[in-house]
Amino acid sequence: MNETLSQIDGSGRQESMLVAAHLSKRYEDGVLALDDLSLAVAPGEIYAMLGGNGAGKTTTINLFLNFIDPTSGQAIVDGIVTHEEPLTARQKIAYVSENVMLYTNFTALQNLDYFARLGGQNDYSKEEYRTALLRVGLQEEAHGKRLRDFSKGMRQKCGIAIAILKDAPAILLDEPTSGLDPKAGLEFISLLDDLRSEGKAILMSTHDIFRAKQIANTIGIMNEGKLVMQKTTEELRGENLEELYVNYMVSGMAVAS
């Protein structure tokens, strides 16, 4: 496994928190959703997976959470192969799904409390929940409201707050900005920046080229289950990411660099 790590993460940076090693997934119906994906995310780093619908982003995240088993290869979290020790691996992951759904009969605070406890955090005070909600931009008056009255964006914010409260070393975000308005999107970016400074390893999938460029350390472009391009933001400086992205989408031929 260390071999795999050094292969992928040969940059001499700190050992990676999230590693996909030749990860492939073929679904029961024969669709090859992920084809030999290798990537690594170190603590204090944000990796953005860009790709259209059906590119394999959610599949990748599901493999990291071991919601599905890989057909071949490994998803590794903090040195733990997820399909070998899923429960331990999940303890090290905070996750925000594409469309955050929480208990509609519970208030935001109740949802936070429940999921914090599930995440192994039993000692938060109500104040800390409120602070977390304020941090993700949910106004005070919404904290005690039931989730059934929340908009998609408000739910998304709760989901992010839950992820923050879990205080796990790795964070997986599946299209986290999709339900947020521009202002909330901006706040979210700065929140991600904070989390990165705290040393979290963040893997996010997104359609949003602009935000990806703004925040990520590394950007990977995925198409039909393959990682077709992977560059750091430094390497991308001066390049037109939109153009690159569209080109890769259209041709789909280029190989990961």
Binding site: L65, L87, A89, A94, V100, M101, L102, L118, G120, I162
Partner: peptide, 14 residues
């Protein structure tokens, strides 16, 4: 359907 099962099992719950 609600989507809460997914989030629940993103934690280390047997």
């Amino acid at each position: 359907e609600q989507g809460t099962l997914r989030l629940t099992f993103a934690n280390g719950i047997p």
